[in-house]
């Protein structure tokens, strides 16, 4: 599937502020299942952009605005091509749990098996597990599927009850929350069961039948990837009770939200800030190249130009002495 994504973030301040420094994780991942055909980031006020790859391989764009300003807009647009991942098997190999418990898995995914600041186990989580009767199945894949569905059923989608970085206890207590909360609860449980799990921030293109998707269509989204032996990372979306396949556009990974926020910034000044976000994800045609206005600048004929080169290649190859 081809998508155009437009993500606008606007900060407004109650009084003029200065020395804003902002890091953004807005550039979609580029990998074998997700091709990035274009990414463009602009800021207002204008700023010099810098970039680096963080320790999860996320591409971070960062900038600063030294002068006084009362509003800051970050405009990111991407063109992304998402392939459908291979269909999952019915079940994993019988030794999948052993593979997860192996030293090799533990060493490779150490930090994604440890509780993190937001996604950590505790009494509330244990009580939740007991109440819902959730427990690992004979197959890790069935385990994650069941967990994904149970979380979908157990929580009501309601914004405003939690913050992006609320500890999972808040959502568990009220059984309400948004995508970050469900992702954090799922991550904490998976790690508790010994399945490496990571947080994914990104976008989801909503199904035409909107009733099926609970997540807000005009915001960024968050879900979970679980590491399954023999397959690798598999995306699960407990907010929408589905797998993260070609409708999900991945931007950043992390142990939890704190590693992968779309924007993170600091500023100097005594002011309240207001954050406004608009996201549109539009399925689009395959990208086309615009050709009509091309002006030919050099007139060498391709077919003729090729032949001397071929001749030279042949003659040079022939000269090479073989001992």
């Amino acid at each position: 599937m081809h998508y155009s994504v437009h993500h606008v973030t606007r900060f407004r301040y109650s009084a003029p502020i200065r020395e804003s420094l902002v890091e953004t994780r807005l550039r979609p991942q580029a990998d074998e299942l997700q091709r990035l055909n274009g990414f463009h980031l602009t800021t207002h006020p204008r700023a010099q952009l810098f970039t680096y790859a963080d320790d999860f391989g996320n591409t971070v764009y960062h900038f600063d605005i030294p002068g006084e300003h009362q509003e800051l807009t970050i405009d990111a647009s991407s063109k992304v091509d998402v392939d459908r991942p291979p269909t999952l098997p019915e079940a994993l190999a019988p030794d999948a749990w052993e593979a997860l418990r192996s030293d090799a898995t533990k060493a490779q995914h150490f930090e994604l098996l440890c509780p993190s600041t937001i996604a950590k186990d505790g009494e509330a989580l244990e009580a939740f597990l007991k109440e819902t009767g959730l427990e690992p199945h004979a197959c890790p894949l069935a385990t994650v599927r069941d967990l994904n569905e149970t979380l979908y059923r157990s929580f009501t989608y309601e914004s405003g009850t939690t913050r992006v970085d609320s500890p999972i206890e808040v959502a568990i207590a009220s059984r309400k929350g948004v995508c970050q909360d469900f992702a954090h609860v799922m991550i904490a449980i998976l790690r508790d069961w010994g399945i490496p799990a990571r947080y994914v921030s990104g976008y989801v293109c909503h199904r035409p039948d909107a009733i099926l998707d609970r997540s807000a269509p005009d915001q960024s989204h968050a879900w979970v990837e679980a590491f399954l032996p023999g397959i690798g990372w598999v995306g699960f979306d407990p907010t929408n009770d589905c797998l993260a396949e070609e409708r999900h556009i991945r931007i950043a990974y992390g142990r939890d939200y704190a590693d992968a926020p779309p924007t993170r910034g600091v500023f100097k000044g005594d002011a309240q800030s207001e954050l406004a976000v608009a996201v549109t994800v539009t399925p689009s045609e395959a990208p086309r190249l615009a050709t009509p206005f091309l002006r030919v600048l050099s007139a060498a004929k391709v077919a003729e130009a090729a032949s001397p080169v071929t001749a030279r290649l042949r003659s040079q190859s022939a000269q090479q002495q073989q001992q």
Binding site: E19, L21, E23, F50, Y52, H62, D64, R264, V266
Partner: peptide, 22 residues
């Protein structure tokens, strides 16, 4: 660096870790 580590730090320099990495 409050941009990278403790956000409530009043002692650090926002952005110094990025300048360091670069």
């Amino acid at each position: 660096d409050p941009l990278r580590f403790r956000r409530d730090s009043m002692l650090g320099v926002p952005g110094i870790v990025n300048a360091y990495r670069a």
